[in-house]
Design a protein around this nucleic acid. Sequence first.
DNA 1: TGAGATATGTAATTTCGACTACATATTCAC
DNA 2: GTGAATATGTAGTCGAAATTACATATCTCA
Lengths: 198, 198
Amino acid sequence: MAVRGRPRGFDRDAALAKAMQLFWAKGYEGVQLAELTAAVGINPPSFYAAVQSKEAIHREALDLYPATAGDGSMAALRDTPGTTTDAVHAMLLASVEVALASPSAGGCMDSLGLVNGQDQNAALRDDLRALRRTTATLIRDRLERGVREADLPADIDAERVATFCATVMQGLSLQAQDGASRDMLIGVVETAMTALDI
Amino acid sequence: MAVRGRPRGFDRDAALAKAMQLFWAKGYEGVQLAELTAAVGINPPSFYAAVQSKEAIHREALDLYPATAGDGSMAALRDTPGTTTDAVHAMLLASVEVALASPSAGGCMDSLGLVNGQDQNAALRDDLRALRRTTATLIRDRLERGVREADLPADIDAERVATFCATVMQGLSLQAQDGASRDMLIGVVETAMTALDI
DNA sequence: TGAGATATGTAATTTCGACTACATATTCAC
DNA sequence: GTGAATATGTAGTCGAAATTACATATCTCA
């Protein structure tokens, strides 16, 4: 059962990837649809034939982000063997790479995609906040696992340490935007790790 | 030599203070001029008779910010007696209060006022970046003073530690936006301080 | 008191950016 | 080949937000 009508003249997945790059580089409100369609090489009607709205494709980009470039830090947290401390260290180092991997060195898409924008985009801003809270929760879960496995002292405050890690990761995104070098960001991570010698 | 013509019907300083509150709460692009004029109780022409543009009053607000509410952290860094560590600790605790003092619990105005906005506001975004770099420089200066006064070990990397502090402070702003409580933010500061037991 | 100067209110204007109407083009099913 | 279905390009529309035109109001100075 092949599709009827005229076939789409561009690669939707490639367009989405391009959109993600743009949103990552410039934030939601920093990207104009005209810019996006120009980057893909299409006209607005072709875009709207394939996507419901700017907001809709941004949501798709948010889903694509961890599935590709943006998953570095959570993947490191999840997959790094060894101690919990090793995993947290790898996570922070990975978040440095994510921040620098932005097409504009603009930090993490979830952290900076929409910070203080227009009221009309409040829903998206709240979604990003929820994503960030989820990240903090994943970190806390990993720390609590470390406690259960006697890898960390039983008396640590997992939520506090997780919030500290999230704070540093978000700060790293802004530092990347401010032009900090990879070496400097890695130095920040190493300094942060000394706070985790619990 | 009194002023000629009809006198202004509103208090310009009060209007500026209101504008600062709004910009602090919602960011540059999150505030509409209509909202600002409504909050002040005037109409747009009265605003434009007293101020050149939205961008101009935002610049004034950026100047007013440290002169009033926003100066907490730098004042603490500057004025806290005792050790350098005491000063840094006070600075971080003050930045928690600044972040929570925002009319919307929205973090520091310099950190979050315009993160990933429209291309047309690139100049303002760059100004904010410069302000943040200045903050990091002030911290580094204080640390270097600590080294000179033998208050800190001679071999610390002042720039790295200063960048760490700036990273945490900026992260605290985002955490405040994400709804972290004062207790949690203070916990983050205490955790960060353990990284500074150099 | 009147002339000059500045402020205000009403109601635009202007610009920009997301989104779309519509005519045309390309494909599939039969 | 014809018709149904979907895509594309041109050229808009539509709404939102900063900014302003202009008539009027209120003040100082002579």
